[in-house]
């Protein structure tokens, strides 16, 4: 049984309307995580990882076609809250986010200290001094010198800005933080620094993380659990240890085989073909056209099976797993 005490997502859909048709960026996601747990969501570019983050935090663009499903956060169904209630009760109170390209996510006309203090003032109505004191503690936490609080975002280096963005996500001490590719634009040393910092924060502040990335190696440092996303769906959820030693889904297996190994003399593999376009998906398993283990049933939409406390959306586990979710109707 997968631990879903903090966040439980069922059949979450987020479709966009574009001139070319409907993009099914998030299409029936089943996912969850527990308290003080770090989940890494991995997947190729364009598989809907960032859209999943936006769907959870309800940061919807204007061209939304469908937005539905269940999102239980700490026991409350946030999909039932209206926009204003969601803004007041969820955003940055229970759940915060370090957006993709966090380096550009800081207001250029506010000092970074004020910027980090803003959520405190917005949500808890505290005075500016108190909010700044809290921001100061967060700066110390993420390892940015406190006198940088008086600087503007463009006066900081990329790594520093990333840390400021993380400080901002921590300032209200939410139970869950979503990090959307927090290290993708940084050099390797800074990446490692930030990963270590996140690990420390997770222990000290008992926070849960959803870490969205395509960098499997770096994220393995932090992960308690791994979710694999493919073509708008989560195809596998597993604890990190067992995932890295033996993934269940054929896609996960191919993905892991593509990671270069330092110690083993193995050529990294690549997956033939391309991920399906998210316009007008055909019925059947979405990975089937590229799958080496493809067989007859793959023409039908696969259900989710539970195998030893891991969940996988694949027909291969029809025999060994227990059915936990019916295949969704397209």
């Amino acid at each position: 049984m997968v631990n879903e005490s903090l966040l439980r997502i069922r059949d979450l859909k987020l479709h966009f309307r574009t001139t070319k048709g409907v993009v099914r960026a998030v299409d029936g996601v089943r996912f969850g995580l527990g308290h003080n747990e770090a989940v890494v969501v991995i997947g190729e570019s364009g598989c809907g990882k960032s859209s999943l983050a936006k769907a959870v935090l309800r940061l919807l663009p204007r061209n939304v076609q469908t937005y539905s499903g269940e999102v239980y956060l700490d026991g409350t169904d946030t999909m039932q809250l209206d926009e204003e209630a969601f803004r007041r009760q969820v955003r940055w109170v229970k759940m915060s986010m370090v957006p993709q390209a966090a380096m550009n996510a800081l207001n250029p006309v506010l000092r970074v200290g004020d910027q980090v203090a803003e959520p405190m003032m917005v949500h808890y109505g505290v005075g500016k001094d108190e909010a700044l004191a809290q921001a100061r503690r967060m700066f110390e936490h993420v390892g940015v010198p406190v006198d940088f609080m008086h600087r503007y975002a463009f006066e900081l280096s990329g790594g520093m800005r990333q840390r400021v963005a993380i400080a901002m996500s921590l300032v209200t001490a939410p139970a869950l933080i979503i990090l959307d590719e927090p290290t993708s634009a940084l050099d390797v040393l800074t990446q490692a620094n930030i990963m270590n910092m996140l690990k420390r924060i997770k222990d000290e502040m008992e926070t849960s993380f959803i870490l969205i990335t395509h960098d499997i190696a770096t994220s393995s440092e932090l992960a308690d659990k791994v979710g694999v996303m493919y073509a708008g769906q989560i195809v596998e959820v597993s604890d990190a240890f067992r995932f890295f030693s033996g993934p269940l889904h054929p896609y996960s297996q191919k993905l892991m085989a593509s990671v270069p190994r330092l110690r083993a003399d193995v050529e990294p593999e690549f997956i033939t073909g391309q991920p399906p376009s998210l316009f007008g998906l055909k019925p059947g398993c979405r990975f089937a056209p590229r799958c080496p283990a493809r067989f007859g049933r793959c023409d039908e939409d696969p259900p989710v099976y539970e195998v030893d406390g891991r969940e996988v959306r694949c027909w291969l586990y029809e025999e060994t797993g227990t059915l936990v979710e019916e295949p969704q109707k397209a």
Partner: peptide, 26 residues
């Protein structure tokens, strides 16, 4: 469309705050 506007929405800034602190200073 700037990323920091979306970031402001994410941290729960209300419409008035975004207009006053994020849009207008620019």
């Amino acid at each position: 469309e700037a990323p920091y506007i979306e970031a402001a929405r994410a941290y729960g800034a209300g419409n008035g705050r975004i207009i006053a602190r994020y849009l207008i200073p620019r």
